[in-house]
Design a protein around this nucleic acid. Structure first.
Length: 123
DNA sequence: ATGCTGACCAGGC
DNA sequence: TGCCTGGCCAGCA
């Protein structure tokens, strides 16, 4: 059995974080903290941000589906990038209110096994 | 080693 | 509603 010698963590964490991000359904969003928790790293939202910040542009990971706990696209220094993320999300159906926020109660991802896209609450 | 930064977050006002 | 604070911890100088 190949154990995990050295594990070093970082690479391992990165792998798990991206695995979770890959599960976020189209048209839904998850917060950094939520992704961290699902990846087995509760309380380490910042690590999720770091990993996403290091993604290559050609990455297939749906990084745009990760937003902050306030339901907003996190500011990141470079202006255009935020607008880009917002456009990608709107293109897949995510709606923002007039103040640039996403209603997490309605569009936040609920990883419950049963409901694949399952919006809680009809409509 | 030490100190600071950061695509974060929950809690307190 | 929004601002501040303390907590978190992996990189980097």
């Amino acid at each position: 059995m190949r154990r995990r010698p050295a594990e070093s963590g970082a690479a391992e964490h990165r792998r798990r974080i991206l695995a979770v991000v890959a599960r976020i359904p189209r048209g839904r969003v998850a917060s950094y903290g939520q992704v961290a928790a699902l990846a087995g790293l509760p309380g380490r939202a910042r690590e999720v941000g770091r990993v996403l910040a290091g993604l290559a542009e050609e990455s297939r990971a749906p990084w745009q589906r990760v937003v902050n706990a306030a339901g907003r696209v996190s500011p990141r220094g470079l202006f255009g990038d935020e607008a880009h993320q917002r456009r990608l999300l709107e293109a897949e159906g995510v709606r923002f209110d007039s103040r640039g926020r996403i209603d997490l109660d309605r569009q936040g991802w609920d990883p419950r096994p049963e409901s694949p896209g399952a919006r809680r609450r009809g409509r």
